[in-house]
Simulated scan of single mutants.
Amino acid sequence: MDHAEEAALHHTVADGVATVTISHPAKRNAMTAAMWRALPELLPGLAADPAVRVLVLTGAGATFCAGADISSLTGDEDPQALAVAAEEALAAFPKPTVAAIRGFCVGGGSQLAAACDLRFAEEGARFGVTPARLGIVYPASSTRRLASVVGPAWAKYLLYSAELIGARTALRAGFLHELLPAGELEERVAGFTRILTSRSALTQAAAKEFADGRTDRDAHWSGQAAASGDTAEGVAAFLERRDPVFSWRPAPSGT
Rank of each mutant, 00 (worst) to 15 (best):
L171E: 10
T19D: 09
M35E: 08
R172L: 04
Q80D: 14
S198T: 06
T97N: 07
D212R: 12
A227K: 13
A18E: 01
L90I: 05
A18D: 03
V245H: 15
S141D: 08
G135I: 11
I70S: 13
W154F: 11
R133V: 04
C65D: 12
A125Q: 04
A91F: 09
E184A: 13
T231K: 05
R199T: 12
A86S: 15
I136N: 10
F210Y: 08
G166Y: 10
I70Y: 15
L112H: 07
L179I: 09
P44G: 10
A132D: 07
F238W: 10
T193Y: 01
L57C: 11
G103Y: 00
A170I: 06
T130L: 15
A173W: 03
Q80N: 12
S253Y: 02
V13I: 12
G135K: 12
M35T: 11
L239I: 11
L112E: 09
V13Y: 02
A85R: 14
E122L: 06
G108M: 02
G191P: 03
R194V: 00
G223Q: 14
E163D: 15
E88T: 15
G67D: 04
A51R: 15
P252T: 03
D230Y: 02
F127E: 03
L82P: 05
P79V: 06
S228G: 10
L42E: 03
L146E: 06
R249F: 02
R133C: 04
F64E: 03
A60I: 01
A227L: 14
V13P: 03
V54K: 00
W154H: 15
V54N: 06
V189Q: 08
A83T: 07
I70P: 06
E123H: 10
D76G: 08
C65Y: 01
R217S: 07
R172A: 12
P139L: 02
E187W: 01
A4T: 09
S222V: 08
A115Q: 09
G45T: 04
